[in-house]
Nucleic acid binder design. Structure first.
Lengths: 159, 159
DNA sequence: GTACTTTTACTCGGATACCGTCTGTCCGAGTAATTATGG
DNA sequence: CCATAATTACTCGGACAGACGGTATCCGAGTAAAAGTAC
């Protein structure tokens, strides 16, 4: 049970997109090369972000991607769901029913209840942080080097 | 990112072991057949529980397994760690450093901080529930059928 | 200079391969209780 | 009846095969801007 690298790439990609001027876009290749990620696989991640409504895509020459809504309205949890899906961490395998309940209708797996509460608590933490809040924290901690990233993003954007 | 079936099997196996009389043991084969689990794979799970100190094993004829400590002192979190290891859900891939920080020493990935807080919250929920508390809840909700399980456990135990 | 065509630079989405992890099986070794054997 | 050996029923732990999902690559199709072309 381990979170995959896609979530991290997606979060930082959204942060970069949040640095663009209004209506400007960045190509997938530009972002992936800046992240040091696999270009083709990163395109698939972008597709997921588009289909989840987090980013807008512009096809054709001088096309690219931009945020579909303000960075402050994109929670880390939204990114996680977009990339990994909304399935829960734990899914019961029905052991409980075969152990205890037989003739009655399928009962509630007690372990599932505990797991769901734990996951809800986990999700709650991810819902409190947004791409914007993450960015602000970085800008506060690294004021010197973070400016270079913003400059790069605006220079590589089009429109 | 999805929890595996091993945790569920382990939790209910520990619950069964918690029904045994003092100093009595159950063979791995007996437990796995009651759970409807793969016997050989379940043996591997039992090994992990033994190595984590949750279960005691008795080799030789009429051997088997029993709890190493009281069911009330075995948290769901302990079972999870025993089966899946203590690695965290999220591990940074260093994207942050290549994005923002260059010449300075490696900085703290802001996303990792959020993820760790979320995971700590998740673990907290799993630490509040024990095998004993789960059992009590089941016994309260299914007083009729749960007795049969206890009877079965004691009949199949040895010593 | 305008209308049309071609080229170019992107996104879109499916097919596919790779690889690590979880699941599952097999087998030989170790251990202790039981049974068999010899005196 | 007692001591010893063989059998039995377990755990122990490594090797290994299969399944599955995340990662990664490739390719053809769609789309729109830019460049080229004809009149």
């Amino acid at each position: 049970m381990r979170m995959r690298t896609g979530v991290e790439q997606a979060v930082y990609a959204l942060m970069i997109l949040g640095l663009l001027p209004d209506r400007a876009v960045l190509s997938g290749e530009a972002i992936s090369s800046r992240l040091g990620a696999s270009p083709t696989y990163f395109q698939k991640l972008l597709r997921k972000l588009v289909q989840s409504g987090l980013v807008m895509s512009v096809p054709g020459a001088k096309g690219g991607f931009r945020l579909a809504r303000h960075a402050g309205e994109i929670r880390v949890y939204d990114v996680y769901v977009a990339v990994e899906g909304q399935q829960s961490l734990y899914t019961s395998n029905g052991l409980f029913d075969s152990l205890v309940v037989h003739d009655e209708e399928p009962g509630r797996c007690m372990l599932a209840q505990v797991m769901e509460e734990a996951e809800a608590s986990w999700q709650g933490a991810l819902k409190q942080e947004t791409v914007e809040s993450l960015k602000k924290q970085i800008w506060m901690d690294y004021p010197n080097t973070s400016g270079a990233l913003e400059e790069w993003a605006q220079q590589n954007s089009v429109k």
